[in-house]
Amino acid sequence: MIAIQTRNLTKKFKEKTAVDQLNLSIEQGELFSLLGVNGAGKTTTIKMLSCLSKPTSGDAVLLGDSIAANPMAVKQKINVSPQETAVAPNLTVKENLETIAGLYGSGRKEAAKKTKEMIENFELSEVAKSKAKTLSGGWQRRLSIAMALISSPQILFLDEPTLGLDVLARRGLWNIIERLKGKITIILTTHYLEEAEALSDRIAIMAKGRLKSVGTAKELMLNTHTEKFEDAFIALATESEVS
C-alpha cells in the first residue's frame, strides 16, 4: 500500500522554484531517503509533506489524506524530527516526551505509559529526570527522535538526524532507525551518503528542486555506470550542469 503519493508538488518563493513538479510514490514501511546538495529542495519537500508549508501547486496524499485539503488529518498520522535538535530546554526528558504525547491527544495516564515505553526503548532512563538543555548533542538527538515517535506516527520524517554527531552517537542512532524499518514509513534526509546507502530501501536524488533519479543504491550505481555510491550521487546531482 502506498504511504505517500506526490502529484506535481511544487513550491515557489517569489522567483525561485524550490521544488519543481515533484512526483514520488513511497510504499508503507519503506525507509526512503532524499539526497541532494544544499538548496536541492529536500527540506522544502519535507516541510510540504509535513504540512508546515503549503505547496504553490500540486498536492500530496499521505495515507489517503491530502496535505492541501485535510492537513489536520495528515498531522495526526505523521511526526517530524527536525534538522536541529528540537527539545524544550527547561523540561526534563520525561516531561518533553509527555508534552509531545499530550500535543497529539494522549491523556495524562496514556502519556505517562507511552513515555515509559519510549524511555525503555531508547535507553533514556539514566537521563530521564535531567533537563533537556543539560544533555549532550547525541542524547538530545536521541530524545528528539523519541519525541517524534511517541505519537505512534505512521509516517516519520527525519531531517538530517545525525548532523554534527560523533561516530559513536551516529552509529547509535543508525541502530535505532534500523529497528524502525518495516514498522513505519520513514522519510530521511541526510548529507551523509554512507548513511543513506546503509539505511535506505530506496533513495531519491534531487537537484535544483527537481527529482533526478529514484532507486536502490545499487540501481543508482548501475544506472550511472559507477562503482561507488558517492560517484553515482555526484553524477546525478550534477547532471544538469554537465549536460
Binding site: L52, V80, E84, Y104, G105, F157
Partner: peptide, 14 residues
C-alpha cells in the same frame, strides 16, 4: 529561534 517551533507546527495544534 529553535526547531521546537517546527515540532509544534507539525503537531495537530490549532
Amino acid at each position: 529561534s529553535t526547531s521546537f517551533l517546527i515540532r509544534l507546527f507539525a503537531s495537530p495544534l490549532s
